[in-house]
């Protein structure tokens, strides 16, 4: 492991100043992803600034009826919070579907959405990866693509040697729920405090796959805000994976559904394991709103969302299976929420 200096400043403002002043500095939260990357040589910082004990470890009620979750709240604590379990079950379920008990106790709400992809090529410093080493190409193209993207990728097959190629997926379960819930990210940066919609936090690879989010150097996530969303009381997270527990998603669906009789009054839908970002399924939502709450309509909405999906070939058979799998998972998840409404 490359040597690094370590600092634990006295305040978040000081932490932001310290990271801003050192181009090769990083923030340390729970460390479950960063410490592994230090060992693998994926992350090679000169300065590590520990913020785990600086940001808030409280979840407080907001004036408008939502919740403000401090960045240092652990994934376990948030999943166990009775307010989350009652009013935002999709979030509690997503948290509990991720990692295992020991990791959830270390992992923080501020750090979880900023974890890096589990693309095996990104994590292997001997292979080409534009995200880890900009301009080196993408070894995932035509490789093992079972865990890779089908949405938000170019219609043409990607070029393994191009500097902008990246077919990685975002690994967080929690982030999929936060995208569905229209969460708000509280950021303290070199220019002061600001908020941004969670759905705008992550970015597609574009011309720079090395950047996972829109955050700049020195920007620190201090809290995640959950706006009030009464329909989220009827919400759920469904994760499909290679093992029953402790595995990343092949596909996942976060959904909240508001049904009036046989009609969909409102819906929130986000997908995991299929794109460089937690994927908010806005096309499917448009198709569903005001339409019938039937399995046929749910399937049509899923198909509309996935019309632009691009399966990636691979030595493992590729990931084309994700498209029918996702269609079925979206349909079943919405159907289950409908059945919950009438029981």
């Amino acid at each position: 492991m490359k040597p690094f200096a370590f600092a634990r400043p006295g305040s978040v403002a000081e932490a932001v100043r310290e990271v801003s002043a050192e181009p090769n500095a990083v923030f340390l939260g729970g460390g479950t992803n960063l410490v592994d990357h230090l060992k693998l040589g994926v992350a090679r910082p000169d300065l590590v600034v520990d913020v785990r004990t600086l940001t808030s470890r409280e979840t407080t009620d907001t004036a408008d009826g939502g919740l403000l979750v401090g960045a240092a709240v652990s994934n376990s604590e948030l999943a166990a919070d009775r307010r989350v379990r009652e009013h935002y079950p999709v979030l509690a379920q997503a948290l509990l579907a991720g990692a295992n008990g020991q990791l959830r106790n270390l992992a923080t709400v501020g750090g979880n959405p900023l974890q890096r992809t589990r693309c095996v090529y990104f994590q292997d410093v001997t292979t080409a990866c534009n995200k880890r080493e900009p301009g080196s190409g993408c070894a995932a193209v035509g490789g093992y693509t079972r865990y890779h993207a089908v949405l938000g990728v170019p219609a043409a097959l990607p070029d393994a040697t191009a500097a902008d190629t990246c077919i990685a997926t975002h690994p967080s379960d929690m982030a999929v729920a936060l995208a569905a819930l229209d969460a708000v990210v509280h950021v303290l940066g070199p220019q002061g405090a600001r908020t941004l919609p969670f759905r705008e936090l992550h970015r597609l690879p574009g011309d720079d796959p090395s950047r996972d989010t829109v955050l700049g150097h020195g920007d620190l996530v201090t809290a995640i805000e959950l706006p009030p969303l009464p329909m989220a009381a009827r919400s759920t997270y469904r994760k499909v994976r290679d093992r029953a527990s402790y595995a990343f998603a092949l596909v996942s669906v976060a959904a909240a559904l508001d049904v009036d009789g046989d009609t969909v009054r409102d819906v929130r839908l986000a997908l995991g394991g299929v794109a460089h970002v937690p994927w908010r399924a806005t096309r499917a939502e448009e198709v569903l709103r005001g339409g019938p709450a039937t399995e046929h309509a749910f399937r049509a909405a899923a198909e509309a969302e996935l019309a632009a999906a691009q399966p990636q070939p691979g030595v493992d058979g590729g990931n084309g299976f994700k498209i029918p799998l996702l269609t079925r998972t979206i349909t079943a998840t919405l159907r289950d929420l409908t059945e919950g409404a009438t029981s």
């Binding site: 370590f6 634990r8 340390l28 460390g31 410490v35 785990r52 008990g101 020991q102 106790n105 270390l106």
Partner: peptide, 21 residues
């Protein structure tokens, strides 16, 4: 999970915890 201990009251992994932190 072979390095699981009770860290400040909760089960946690020691291999992903920097001592200095």
């Amino acid at each position: 999970g072979a390095c699981t201990v009770i860290l400040d009251g909760e089960r946690a992994l020691l291999c992903l915890a920097l001592a200095v932190a």
